[in-house]
Amino acid sequence: MSVTIKDIARASGVSYSTVSKALNDSSLVKPETKRKVVETAKALGYTPNLSAKNLVSKKSRTIGLVWPSLDRVALTELVAKINNIVTEKNYFMILSVNAADHAVKMFESFQVDGILLFEGGIENQLPPLFSSSVPIITYGVARNGHPYPIVDVNHKAAISKAVEHLVSLGHKNIHYIGEDSHADKRQYQKWTGFQEAMNNAHLPVNQTDTKGLGWYDGYLAAQKVLGQESLPTALISGSYDISIGILRAVKERHLRIPEDLSLVSYDNIPQMASLETALTSVGVPIDSLAETMVESLLSLIETKDTAHSTKRLDPEIHIRKSTSIV
């Protein structure tokens, strides 16, 4: 039989209302009384009735996250960081890998307090006329007519930083390996960002479309690039996973990084520093990105204010051992 507040009141020798206030950390209860009540509750194995509390507060203290992929390391790391922060804020998180509109409708039926939506391909973008009764923050690319508040990373600036770094080391033959996808606007921003940066540097634009974001997509694309008669002196990769495929292709060709080929990777995650050759990387640090997404959603849940609808984060470059002077 579950322990109730009345049981705690009886065991600690205080009133029912005092127990209720103490367990809700009310300033109306003396610290020594509060401590006694909490210790008694723990000793009896008391578990708060969240359903009852939710009925009173009209909050589930749960957020939903619409996640586009189960197999990409950078996204997995980001979701793990988000979950840690959500837990620290005394919320719960539910994941869905369904198409965005179906996932949102499901979360509405679960009565979540808010939703984080990772935009990706078409299946992870809400239809233009879609409406939801639940506050939504999306992680994607800011654009006119977007109906929901959005957290955006300046992907073009990230790739520009990569190009500038390589040019400063004397590289002129730089090749971009990533996905040219109009459906996934984040990837398309990187693709066009490379073109703009190279044009600004008055250098030839060389790109290879991976047609996917997995490590094997990066491996196949790198095989094509490294099989050419004239090799680039530097590569820029569109993601951590793509970089893993590139590193495998480089190793099979008996080339060395950075002695034979410099490499800069998009995605600013801790794993970059722990590879056999630590990768120079560009992007918003994963901790900052996760914190911004969660804080933005919780603020929206509390205020319902969408006036400041876009937060655009500036990328950083972390220079490590995978790049050198040409």
Rank of each mutant, 00 (worst) to 15 (best):
E119F: 03
I150S: 00
L235W: 03
P270H: 04
Q111N: 14
L169H: 07
S288Q: 15
S12D: 03
Q271V: 08
E77C: 09
H146D: 02
Y46F: 15
K42G: 05
R312H: 05
K59R: 15
P127R: 07
K304E: 11
G283S: 06
A52W: 01
E302D: 12
V326H: 10
A183E: 12
S243T: 15
E316P: 03
D71N: 14
S69D: 11
V141S: 00
R10T: 14
N98T: 13
L166M: 13
K211G: 06
Y219H: 12
T310F: 10
Y139Q: 00
L78S: 01
S239T: 03
N54A: 14
I246T: 09
E196N: 13
L203I: 05
T33C: 07
I269V: 12
V326K: 12
A74I: 04
S274T: 13
S322T: 06
E302H: 07
T87A: 11
S239R: 02
V112S: 01
S262F: 03
L44M: 13
Y148M: 07
Y219D: 02
Y139V: 01
T18Q: 04
A290T: 06
L261W: 09
S2M: 13
K58Y: 11
I159L: 13
Y46S: 02
W215V: 01
E39S: 11
R312I: 14
K156N: 10
I8K: 09
D217Y: 00
H175K: 10
A11G: 08
V66G: 00
D180N: 15
I286M: 03
L95S: 02
Q189R: 14
G114A: 08
D217W: 00
P232S: 10
S324P: 02
I85A: 07
Q125S: 09
R186K: 12
R10W: 05
A197P: 04
T192W: 01
D152W: 00
H171S: 07
D209N: 13
I286T: 15
